[in-house]
Amino acid sequence: MTITPLAQAARPTSRSIRWSPLVGVAAVLVIVLLVARTAQRPSDVVMAIAAAALASVVVASLHDPATDLLAPVPVSVMQRRLLRLALVLVPALLVWVALVVVAPPSLEATSPGPLLAMTAVGVAAGVWSPARRAVLVGASVPVLWFALDMTVPSDVLLGDAAGWWRTDPWPVAAVALGALVAGRRR
């Protein structure tokens, strides 16, 4: 059984995670959304940035300085990844809820779907990337995808696809989870 070792590892793992990026990103987003309450403009784009940034933070938390040290333990890499994800994803979702509460009342993008879709895609990209740069690649994917979404005109096919993480987050998350399951032994 691996549940017990994972439960025992939860506390030291949470100590090894660097929480400053999540705190820093959350603080900046809260400040900007408070400013947005005074502006009479839509703030959905701020929430889209928040989703991509939080997803990048969650994926970045997979960086484990003790990877080599823990390699021989009888808990797989994927299980250790899932433990880290669970430990960071819950606070990230709480931050999301806080952002929705702070955001102007006119906000429409309140679903955490884009955040979860980006997270799943980032983790899947990290799992299938070369081990040396896996987490860096995974954490960069939400950033890159968002940049493409903002850059590519929506009237071309690529522009349409670049927006799927916002418009159809659940199918995107499902595909990413499929890739994750396929790479569970990596």
Binding site: R18, P21, A53, L54, S56, V57, A60, L136, A139, V143
Partner: peptide, 8 residues
């Protein structure tokens, strides 16, 4: 950790 901070 730099990637999400710079992005945001």
């Amino acid at each position: 950790s730099v990637v999400p901070l710079l992005f945001v």
